[in-house]
Design a protein around this nucleic acid. Structure first.
Lengths: 415, 415
DNA sequence: CAAGTTTTTTAAAAAAATAAAAAACCATTT
DNA sequence: AAATGGTTTTTTATTTTTTTAAAAAACTTG
């Protein structure tokens, strides 16, 4: 079988993974090849029992199209979702269904020289547990916090390696392709491919958690910037509050908006004697941060004034940040995602308020505010999508740079 | 001649326009076709005296490549650069050289129902004057202020039309393809293709003028957003100064940074008795705004303390805005362009200062601050580039949207 | 049931890539 | 100064891939 038809097959598999069900005509358009060629390749894929005919879609005025989909068990992804304290690993099939229950374990990233080795051990372990043959695994996708350079496969904040890249290390040990990406980028990718930003051209996915991350979707793809650092929403300078941020500067967006700050403010309010159900619900201990944040969100949902006030204030400030995003990038939708998205509707009013005050109306009306449809699954799904996005990607040969005017000048063009 | 080889020819012409001098191997790579095919097409183009062999480039260790370039007079563009008060029109050849001196005339855009008709008259007139045959004109590119939707061909701020699009009107009257774009976008395109951001992947081009515009270059292309409104840098909410902006909101970036504000502040300073050479140089009259701004920049260059102070303050504030851009988009370069770029080096110190204070170091070090190499020509060159960017573009057939999960659910898939 | 759509299949024609050889050049060595 | 081995670019002939065009099949609408 020729390399080319092999590459087309991979492209078709990728398309079917992302769209689930497609007709031959749709596939032909998506891979930008003629119908007859697409038909031929499809038939081969069917013969190999990779693709299956899934019945007819309703007619749109003519003959009904035969729909095609992937056999779910032909290929799997290893999806890893990390935060500073916990890591989750899942094996997913071509319908993003888990082969095993998600493996969740504590893994502290800060100042932990063993983290990468432990992570890799766990990945190996999970693969083994699943019983899935390695030849059927398309790759390992990992979302992690920090300054991640996906191209180099490095993380400048955590998981330091000596000389080697993170992806290189994992690939070598597991014998599988490995890809990394910043966690917020991964969430953005998930919402783009399978969530609230599905099929959108330009979308901003706000990842509300201990910081406020941002997955930037531009022209239908995750945008990473020159070094993979795009989306540092948390640290745009927005306030004159003098509050020192974890990044060393002051006045960053996250000093007024993260779930962490909200919990802090709740504690202060209780101390100051605010009337609120939170008084009896919050533990206030460092290790219960996660639970406390959820409690505040839950209480706001139940109508607790103080909780609502806390979220509203943060929401308004996030809204100020979103106003900047809208001015700069004119997205069709802004999606609230991450842990904080649980509070869904509660954010919307104050954010809208901020947009009304800080956005040029013509811009604001063109941008929808949506809420994540994926929730806690987002990062795992995004990691799977990251792997499949690379599946069958044609690697362009690296070319030496084009001759510059200068080299031409210096050396002269001769007849 | 087949439609396909026709389209390849146009692609090659486009590549040669943007790169000026290319070898067959480079062209083959750029149009993503095999060498033999590229050779064949090139030979046809040479036979048609469209492309010429320009001699040999220096060897890079093997046989020297034959370089190819365009015959400058095979094709022309009509380049239009508009601001709120004046419009410039030029006819340019394939080396961006003017066929005629630039035609500059007053054309007030605000509340002027005749503006579009007058503009079109002028365009027709300039074409006629140039003596260039219309069949040799690739199209008309126009950069204009306001909320421009390039796809629809509309401007929501100026040049209102009844029902018809601006591009449609001009195309119909001139019988030429017409394209419009926001002025700052055009300047960004110019710097990307021929200026300080040449061959950069991600660049922010700041257009310092009466407002502060932004041309956003992402992944090697001008980014326009969902509706073409991306880059509204002028109106991001950045200050708590309570100053009302022309857009109706308060605290916008431009309320502290535009050349307009700088001239205003200069007047105030003189009134307050500041010691400065500006006292004798500034006219202060509305109609001399342009001259006054230049005087301030010039005086700062000569060392006038007050002038430097004015620019530094504005520069610092622009720097705060740039810090946000860097956090969000991680560009490789930020280019200072537009009228204000005259002050070039004077901006750099305060901007760098702002970046040091407001940027995470890891981000700041990855972003270069550059100064426009095109100056006042930028907008005209950008308009030409806009036309040539579209030249020979393959128009994808509009497909009906993919079946959604919902339509599938409702109607059911049948065997 | 006829006319108009949309999808699928097939055979023939056209397009494009590959592979191999030739040409032109550089850097060493003899 | 000529020869040699290694590069890069150009050309040519052959093979493979891909598209086109036309017909058939399946469906909707009036």
């Amino acid at each position: 079988m020729s390399a080319k038809s092999q590459s087309y097959k991979k492209k078709i598999i990728r398309q079917l993974y992302f769209s689930n069900l497609l007709s031959c005509a749709e596939l032909s358009h998506k891979i930008d090849k003629s119908l007859s060629l697409t038909t031929k390749i499809l038939n081969e894929l069917i013969a190999e029992t990779i693709v299956i005919e899934t019945g007819y879609a309703p007619s749109s005025g003519g003959r009904r199209p035969l729909m095609y989909s992937l056999k779910p068990d032909i290929l799997y992804t290893v999806s890893v979702a990390m935060d500073q304290f916990f890591t989750r690993i899942a094996i997913m099939d071509m319908q993003n269904k888990h082969v095993l229950p998600v493996e969740k374990f504590e893994l502290r990233l800060a100042d932990n020289p063993m983290a990468l080795a432990v992570l890799t051990d766990k990945i190996e372990y999970v693969i083994e547990q699943s019983g899935v043959d390695k030849s059927k695994i398309a790759g390992i996708g990992i979302g992690m916090p920090g300054f991640v350079d996906p191209q180099q496969g490095l993380n400048y904040s955590f998981l330091q390696t000596k000389g080697e890249s993170i992806t290189g290390y994992i690939a070598k040990r597991t014998n599988l392709a490995a890809y990394i990406e910043n966690d917020s980028g991964i969430v953005g990718l998930a919402e783009l491919k399978f969530g609230a930003a599905r099929n959108r051209r330009n979308a901003m996915v706000i990842n509300i958690g201990w910081g406020v991350g941002l997955g930037i979707i531009l022209e239908g793809a995750l945008f990473r910037g020159d070094n993979g650092f795009a989306g540092e929403f948390s640290h745009i300078p927005l306030f004159d509050n003098g509050k020192l941020c974890s990044c060393g500067k002051s006045g960053c967006l996250e000093t007024e908006t993260s779930l962490f700050v909200i919990v802090e403010k709740a504690k202060e309010g209780i101390q100051a004697g605010r009337v609120t159900v939170l008084k009896n619900l919050l533990s206030g201990r460092e290790e219960d941060l996660e639970k406390d944040a959820e409690t505040i969100i839950f209480s706001a949902g139940k109508g607790d004034r103080f909780a609502i006030e806390l979220l509203s204030e943060a929401g308004y400030n996030i809204g100020r940040g979103i106003a900047i995003l809208i001015h700069l990038l004119n997205p069709g939708i802004v999606v609230l995602s991450g842990r904080g998205a649980l509070a869904g509707k509660i954010w919307q009013a104050p954010i809208q308020q901020a947009l009304n005050e800080h956005c040029i109306p013509r811009l604001a009306v063109n941008t929808e505010i949506g809420i994540s449809t994926l929730g806690y699954e987002a990062e795992l799904i995004g990691s799977a999508a990251l792997v499949m996005e690379k599946f069958g990607e044609t690697i362009k040969k690296v070319r030496k740079p084009e001759r510059t005017i200068n080299t031409m000048m210096n050396s002269g063009i001769s007849k």
